[in-house]
Amino acid sequence: MESLSTVNTERVNAVPVRYDEPLVRAAQQGDRQAYHALYKHYHQRVYALCYRLTADTGMAEDATQEVFIQLWQKLKNYTWKSRFSTWLHSVATHITVSYMRKQKSWVAHMLNIETSPEVQALDASRCTSEVDLEALIIRLPERARVVFVLHAIEGYRHDDIAALLNIATGTSKAQFHRARGMLIKWLDGENYGQ
């Protein structure tokens, strides 16, 4: 898990205060109250990641729960070689991708089917002068979106993404450029819904 440590730590750790150490250490010893405090601090970051990867509120909620249930057991593996938030992000990414793999529809999408037209179609009325980039990302085709989120937002290298998604590095790069191209087109106000 920790080999995939290229996540954008600056985004994750705006204030580098070691506030979570006592909580992590207590949670590692089975203190549920401490773990709940950790959950309250980090769950919105994890949920944001899950939502961007799954593009679905319900799946993101389920994936977030899955992350924190599995994390409880994985806490003993955390060895303080990296920041807890960095490690958590890496674990959350792996668990979410695994969760998505378990969903039959996701496997189908990843193998050969792009996102359905109704999902891909962009509601131009939402694109006011204040562009909602999140909404645009969510409307990207699934393969392109997952790669884009991992590379452009989470800071993973294409090699790591390829290993995580079991695809070729070149495929990861191609999907990233595809996603980026679509977003730029949409920002130009052209070709909505294509």
């Binding site: 985004r11 994750v12 705006a14 709940h36 959950y39 309250k40 769950h43 919105q44 970051r45 949920y47 944001a48 939502y51 509120t57 993101a60 909620e61 977030t64 729960q65 924190f68 249930i69 999140e134």
Partner: peptide
Amino acid sequence: PTEKAPERDLWQGI
């Protein structure tokens, strides 16, 4: 934004 709030309380299930 780095954070997004879920629409329901997830802790009970966790």
